[in-house]
Design a protein around this nucleic acid. Structure first.
Lengths: 145, 145
DNA sequence: TCCTGATTATTGCATATGCAACGATACAGG
DNA sequence: CCTGTATCGTTGCATATGCAATAATCAGGA
């Protein structure tokens, strides 16, 4: 029986990156979920809405990498929970117009500082490698693989 | 209405890393799935089995970051497809003993070179940042966040 | 030997996910 | 004005996922 080529999964970038991303998201996701019942998809929607302006599902799909049914469901949950108002867009009634409610604004006033604190913690941990890490991620995100 | 703190999701590491990981896995996953019907979880199981030896579900959980029910189901599918043999461990019958069948070995003889080629492509793309990227990933994977 | 507590893999179940199909709306060309 | 085409959001559906509960097995001590 012929031997297989050597292959070390623990050095394989797609694997390493996936596990690292899970680690990074896990902590925040767990806390957000436990304290506020907010999922990662909902978090992305909220962040984009906090930027202001009228936002549609397709905007979310394009800007925060949420497949449209995922974005639609996240928005529906947030609207049901009162964090988000969802009305048809006046100019084009195919579109929905999402925006933060006062309750959603208050939620983000809690959440954003926590995210910034976590970001700073990562900055300290990765200080030396930060520039190269950003460059590598930019390359991966830009390049068409 | 008080203004919210500035927050740029596209610079937030958990988000960036998640999207980058999805990009990296997507290409390979799509091809493996289309050509061989192999999922990411099954791929991880196969790689670990290709290392040789008798492997249990708990080994997979510990070594390739697969939650145990995910590992169990992946192993069951691979066994059903004839890529893997699954028998109770003789010394401890609580454990299963997984190993590659000849068919599974042939599959990996196809898959591993493709993975190595992809790895090399990434190495070329990220040549300049590679060392720092590895260091950053090691830090994230090691540190308890 | 016979309990008791641990460990392991599987399965039930509720929820999440992604894709395709659909209905509603907009728009351009005739 | 009409008609065909494109875009947008939602939903149906099949599958995937994660957690908790379970059954089987083991190890150690009374």
């Amino acid at each position: 029986m012929r031997d297989l080529p050597e292959f070390d999964l623990s050095r394989f970038l797609p694997y390493r990156m996936t596990v690292a991303a899970e680690r990074l998201s896990a902590g925040m996701a767990r806390r957000y979920r436990a304290e506020f019942g907010i999922s990662v998809a909902e978090w992305r929607v909220l962040v984009h809405l906090a930027d202001g302006g009228e936002v549609s599902i397709r905007d979310l799909e394009a800007r925060v990498n949420l497949e449209k049914s995922k974005a639609s469901r996240a928005a529906a949950r947030l609207a049901a929970d009162g964090y988000v108002t969802k009305v048809p867009n006046a100019q084009d009634r195919r579109l929905v117009s999402l925006s933060l409610s006062d309750k959603g604004r208050a939620l983000m006033a809690d959440l954003i500082p926590r995210a910034l604190a976590f970001q700073e913690r990562l900055d300290r941990l990765l200080a030396a490698e930060r520039a190269a890490l950003d460059a590598a991620l930019d390359a991966i995100l830009t390049e068409d693989l």
